[in-house]
């Protein structure tokens, strides 16, 4: 399977997961978006050498994935797929920051390694939370919540259309790639030059489609704003969901839960 096809089937799988009906799926999208936003802010606001303090946050994506029927294997593979970015971002930290920060069993660990671990952990946490949010709310649900939070229409419309046409664009790219490989003899015709031309072709097709799409929208009275009829009802349980998780995150952020638990287990003073 080509990488385009693999990418499409992943988005498709995410979409199918979002159509399940579990307790997590039934939570109002707004509650989930708020909880996830607080989660992300708390995670990224830690000091750059923080590692242990981040650990309790794992609970959120884990619980939601487990309760929301999102397979851990699938989640893991997706995280792996998007991880190169984070791996590269912090890759130079261990080289630049060599000052020994902690001693573990007599071995000194440089600050660079600690901050690198912190970056990776933060990345995994925030990416996992965003993925679980999408897999339990659907992309459209997230957009709907954003719309209700008064995020500018232009942005919400962009997101909605982007998601809708990823499939169409992906299919088009797939057909072009197939047509090329069928007429490419051996390695000939597979070079960068042809690749660049194909990208240009794809861009032109996208422009043409955008034009037709806009005409179709105008025909049905589009005035710059996509109205979504879906009714949202914020129940007490939804408010409790958002408030409960947010409180937990703030707690994790300001109180060293890891040491506290460790202290309880070992009977020490923490």
């Amino acid at each position: 399977m080509s990488s385009v096809a693999a990418g499409l089937s992943t988005v498709d799988r995410l979409d199918r997961l979002a159509r399940q009906d579990t307790a997590v799926h039934r939570v109002d999208p707004r509650a989930k978006v708020v909880a996830t936003a607080v989660f992300i802010v708390c995670v990224v606001s830690f000091d750059r050498y923080e590692v242990l303090g981040l650990l309790p946050f794992v609970v959120f994506p884990m619980v939601l994935a487990a309760e929301g029927g999102v397979p851990f294997g699938f989640l893991g593979r997706l995280l792996l797929l998007v991880s190169p970015f984070a791996l590269l971002v912090g890759a130079f930290n261990p080289l630049l920051d060599r000052e020994v920060l902690v001693q573990v069993g007599g071995v000194g660990i440089a600050g660079g390694w600690v901050s690198y671990a912190s970056i990776l952990l933060r990345f995994l946490l925030t990416a996992a939370a965003a993925l679980v949010l999408t897999a339990t709310t659907s992309f459209a649900g997230v957009c709907l919540a954003l719309e209700r939070f008064r995020v500018p229409d232009v942005l919400v419309t962009q997101l909605l259309l982007l998601y809708r046409y990823i499939f169409v664009l992906g299919d088009e790219a797939l057909r072009m790639a197939r047509a090329r490989s069928l007429r490419a003899v051996g390695r000939r015709g597979m070079g960068m030059r042809v690749y660049a031309q194909m990208l240009g072709q794809l861009l032109l097709r996208t422009f043409a489609r955008a034009q037709r799409l806009y005409l179709a929208m105008k025909c049905r009275g589009f005035d710059g704003r996509v109205r979504i009829a879906r009714r949202l009802q914020l129940r007490a349980a939804d408010v409790a969901f958002a408030a409960g998780w947010s409180a937990a995150f703030v707690l994790f952020r300001f109180i060293d839960v890891t040491s506290l638990l460790g202290g309880l287990v070992t009977g020490g003073g923490g």
Binding site: S138, F139, A140, C143, L160, L161, Y163, R164, Y165, V168, R209, R212, L213, L215, A216, M217, C219, R220, G221, F222, D223, V226, R227, I228, A229, R230
Partner: peptide, 29 residues
């Protein structure tokens, strides 16, 4: 409002997340 137009490629015409929302797009507007 008087003239409804059905395009050649339905992919150009169906742009909302679900069928119901797509059919409701015009009436909402």
């Amino acid at each position: 409002r008087t003239v409804g137009m059905v395009f050649q490629d339905p992919d150009d015409q169906l742009f909302m997340p679900t069928v119901a929302e797509d059919v409701g797009f015009g009436p909402l507007n």
